[in-house]
Design a protein around this nucleic acid. Structure first.
Lengths: 201, 201
DNA sequence: CGGAGCCGATGACAGATGTCATGGGTTCGC
DNA sequence: GCGAACCCATGACATCTGTCATCGGCTCCG
């Protein structure tokens, strides 16, 4: 009884290495590979695997949408692999139906076991991130504040942010000010950094 | 005739996957693994491998120092693997004696061949990065300007930067202004981003 | 209904930031 | 010796940013 896998990661070297790692297991076989979120969905539809292993960071866009789509349309369980394991992202991943959440700090030897567990109907979530997600304060920012902070993340001036979010410059500064106060950040860069680290943006 | 390798990457999953990938080759054997730059040097000294494969991004510090040390002290050729292949970093890597420079966008199947080439005394440099490095403008920033831009990269206020670099606040602003003018950046965040993307900081 | 919270905006103000001119110090190469 | 380039600093100025008070409109809940 082999488990048929689809594997997606935008970095060829990593994807190939993971394929080699999983190929060492007698009961795992990689039947399809993809280098982007869109391609991952297409390959999954074509191959109808028993399980999909997706990297979360696959520009453009993230693997979360692909994970949700693969789970919703095909009923295929998804294991997400991520470099930056942020609490908020775990929350959204679980909401999207993801069955496994594995940071890249996980020992390589455990990945196959995790895949078997998820294939067997169980879930796997990295204990550290789970703890962080359970103890975290919920995001204190309003949707609009999140928009503005997101737009401010690249260090753009207020006028640019205002244009991007279709708001008056003064309103943007108000939202930024509110977000900085809520996050205890001295400036918008720090606020954006904090929000990102928590997985809120 | 097998090639004995030491492999270093801070992410366990990636390191293990790369080990699996390389282990598929009959003539390659991974004799030591490390999860940090310092550990990489120690393991290399203990194992005296034929070649070392190091990830460039290994906080704290980067793999460049470890690569230079392994090359200088042991005469072991080093292949650097990196996620963000920036022209300036390639320049510094070659100056440090690195023999192979491989971005993670390289197809996995080629890594073994690259290792054999480097072990055979040749060099390997990713063609795209090499082209970028050859056509790039040289860094226009003075050493002091680089210091200040580096300190400004995290979005710290001027006073903090001044304290970190032991300069008067006004001087910091002058350096930042000069750097922004040279890089064509509208503010210091953009300047820091540009400098980073070019591999100058 | 009334309050609370979010949304969008304005105006005023202090402080931070970016620009410019200018100065004196050093080192280096011609 | 002289100019060029870098280093460090100051002062003045315009702009940007962050804070605060205040406004009206909206929705949702008790």
């Amino acid at each position: 009884m082999t488990i048929r896998l689809v594997l997606a990661d935008d970095e060829d070297l990593i994807r190939g290495a993971l394929a080699a790692l999983l190929g060492l297991e007698d009961d795992l076989v990689v039947v399809g590979e993809a280098a982007s979120a869109a391609e991952a969905v297409a390959v999954a539809c074509a191959e109808r695997p028993d399980l999909a292993v997706l990297d979360l960071e696959m520009p453009p866009g993230d693997g979360l949408g692909a994970a949700a789509e693969i789970h919703a349309r095909l009923g295929v369980p998804v294991v997400l692999v991520t470099r930056h394991a942020r609490p908020g992202v775990l929350r959204r991943a679980l909401a999207a139906g993801v069955r496994g959440f594995v940071p890249k700090t996980t020992p390589a030897a455990r990945l196959a076991a995790i895949i078997r567990e998820v294939h067997g109907g169980r879930r796997y979530v990295d204990p550290d991130i789970a703890a962080a997600a359970l103890t975290e304060r919920p995001c204190p920012l309003t949707p609009r504040e999140l928009d503005v902070v997101r737009a401010a993340a690249r260090g753009a001036p207020v006028a640019e942010i205002a244009a991007a979010v279709h708001l008056a410059p003064g309103t943007v500064r108000n939202y930024l000010s509110a977000a900085m106060a809520k996050l205890g950040a001295p400036n918008r860069q720090a606020a954006a950094r904090t929000a990102w680290e928590q997985g809120w943006i």
